[in-house]
């Protein structure tokens, strides 16, 4: 290769590697802030700030959803199978919100460790299948992720 072109090739590689390293370091330094939500284990460990707006995400615990009979108030627990956080919310839940499914609640953690949520989002997983396939899996004793129940 012509020496001038070789020099420019090295310069181009240098620009790419140097900017990747710089942005990589920035992303590494900000890694805690890039997460959209806290998992319940970190909330239980006291890593989430109390009295400030935060998001907590995980699975809605089976059988934990309690709806009020005369208002839109709802109470449920979010878990990451290490710890769980109780959530109180008043409002309309997304259609795909369900027990045993992912959810992200944003709100303020009160002194007793309950998340007073102002917004609840459903978190969809990466599994896509027709209803018949899901039924067949259910009958054969597997959940939709292919894990034995």
């Amino acid at each position: 290769m012509h020496p001038v072109r070789k020099q420019r090739l090295i310069l181009v590689l240098f620009v790419v590697l140097f900017s990747s390293a710089a942005i990589g370091l920035v992303v590494y330094a900000l890694r805690g802030n890039i997460n959209l939500f806290f998992p319940p284990a970190e909330v239980a460990a006291g890593k989430a700030p109390v009295g400030q707006p935060i998001r907590v995400g995980g699975m809605v615990v089976d059988g934990s959803v309690q709806r009020s009979s005369d208002s839109l108030a709802v109470r449920f627990e979010i878990t990451d199978f290490e710890a769980s956080v109780p959530v109180i919310y008043e409002g309309i839940l997304p259609d795909l919100f369900d027990e045993g499914q992912g959810a992200v609640a944003s709100g303020v953690l009160d002194a007793s460790g309950v998340l007073q949520a102002t917004e609840v989002l459903a978190k969809h997983d990466e599994n896509y299948m027709p209803p018949e396939v899901a039924d067949a899996l259910e009958k054969s004793g597997y959940d939709h992720k292919g894990n034995a129940k």
């Binding site: 890694r31 995400g57 299948m129």
Partner: peptide, 23 residues
């Protein structure tokens, strides 16, 4: 890398994809 609302990839280059073949 991070906790996000967006789900992980359904089409996997290694291993079985988590989207039904008909889809």
């Amino acid at each position: 890398w991070w906790y996000s609302l967006h789900q992980p990839a359904s089409i996997k280059f290694t291993g079985e994809s988590s989207i039904d073949p008909s889809m």
